[in-house]
């Protein structure tokens, strides 16, 4: 186990290094810099700003300096908002994204797994079709349409919930739905197909033969094994939603990290682009490692290599 974690850690550092290098040079290849304005700043002022942020050095020197600082966890100041730093920005917005992501994931699991199990159990009957239909509906409506639709129905017509922002528990319901429904659909589909496989295995027949109740057979014996592929999916899914999702955050005015991935490219806020991208990469890889550990825990036949 310790060996496994150590190896994954080495991999993580290596991958983050490659990622940092790739994104660093890709971002710098973009035309336009952080200090380009509609009304251009005097070149002398730009020079001052560049000196202040260390952008006057050669690209190679900047790259080395960036790596050295990043290794110490310092991603520097944000250019777009003077007085703000990348570290502060992540500390401020990541918890919001993480919370929303967790709620959505809980909803997705709570909705997706029963739906998938039902569909598999009543394979090729109307229950299956209905469940699949609902699942696909959840997945195929683009968030750009779903978010305003949820607002229209639950906030404006029924007046059950507030429209947007992230203040009270009630404010969390609509963004959770917007983010979670699509994931629920994905989980339901996966749960259905792996359940279909498991339900015909011998040990399930044995369990039935032993006279165990149908509910116990399906939800205790079959589901445990059917969950393995679902767990594989949960890792990356969690990484994505925890680090922020642009559209949901924009539509529900949620102050998460997701919008900064995109707005920071628009403002050429290099430190923010680097910081958020590397955070994303790190979370994805940690999640994948956790999934592998979880794997061996659910199914002892799988060994950590």
């Amino acid at each position: 186990m310790i060996h496994f974690i150590a190896r994954r850690l080495v991999n993580l550092v290596f991958a983050l290094f490659v990622l940092a290098t790739l994104i660093f040079f890709m971002v710098r290849a973009l035309p336009g810099g952080p200090f380009d304005r509609e009304k251009p700043l005097p070149p002398e002022v730009v020079k001052n700003l560049e000196a202040y942020y260390g952008l006057d050095k050669s690209l190679g020197e900047q790259y080395v300096a960036f790596l050295a600082n990043a290794a110490r966890g310092d991603f520097g100041p944000s250019y777009a908002s003077r007085g703000d730093t990348v570290g502060a920005l992540i500390l401020r917005h990541l918890p919001v994204s993480a919370e929303l992501g967790l709620w959505a994931l809980i909803l997705a699991v709570a909705l997706g797994i029963p739906l998938g199990v039902l569909a598999a159990y009543y394979h090729n009957t109307w229950v299956d079709f209905l469940a699949t239909f609902l699942a696909v509906l959840g997945r195929s409506i683009p968030t750009i349409a779903l978010a305003p639709l949820l607002i229209l129905i639950f906030a404006q017509t029924l007046r059950w919930l507030p429209v947007a922002r992230f203040d009270t528990p009630a404010h969390r319901v609509l963004p959770t739905l917007a983010l979670g429904l699509g994931m629920a659909a994905l989980i339901a589909r996966l749960a259905r197909s792996s359940m279909l496989q498991v339900i015909r295995e011998d040990y399930i027949r044995t369990a039935r033969a032993k006279g165990l109740g149908e509910f116990t057979v399906v939800f205790v014996h079959a589901l445990r094994n059917a969950l393995i592929p679902v767990v594989t999916l949960l890792g990356p899914l969690l990484a994505v939603v925890v680090t922020g999702t642009f559209i949901v955050e924009v539509f529900f005015a949620v102050p998460g990290l997701g919008r900064y991935y995109i707005t920071s490219i628009g403002t050429r806020d290099y430190p923010v682009i680097m910081g958020t991208s590397l955070l994303f990469g790190a979370v994805i890889m940690v999640m994948n490692a956790l999934v592998d550990i979880l794997y061996s825990w659910i199914d002892p036949r799988i060994r950590l290599e």
């Binding site: 490659v18 994104i23 995109i262 490219i265 790190a282 890889m285 994948n288």
Partner: peptide, 25 residues
């Protein structure tokens, strides 16, 4: 290992970078 690294890339950021780059000029 290559797949791992690419997997850890924030897809949308990369897509946007590529598209902005090619559509410039």
């Amino acid at each position: 290992r290559v797949v791992d690294v690419l997997y850890a890339m924030p897809t949308l950021v990369v897509v946007i970078l590529i598209m902005v780059y090619f559509r410039a000029g």
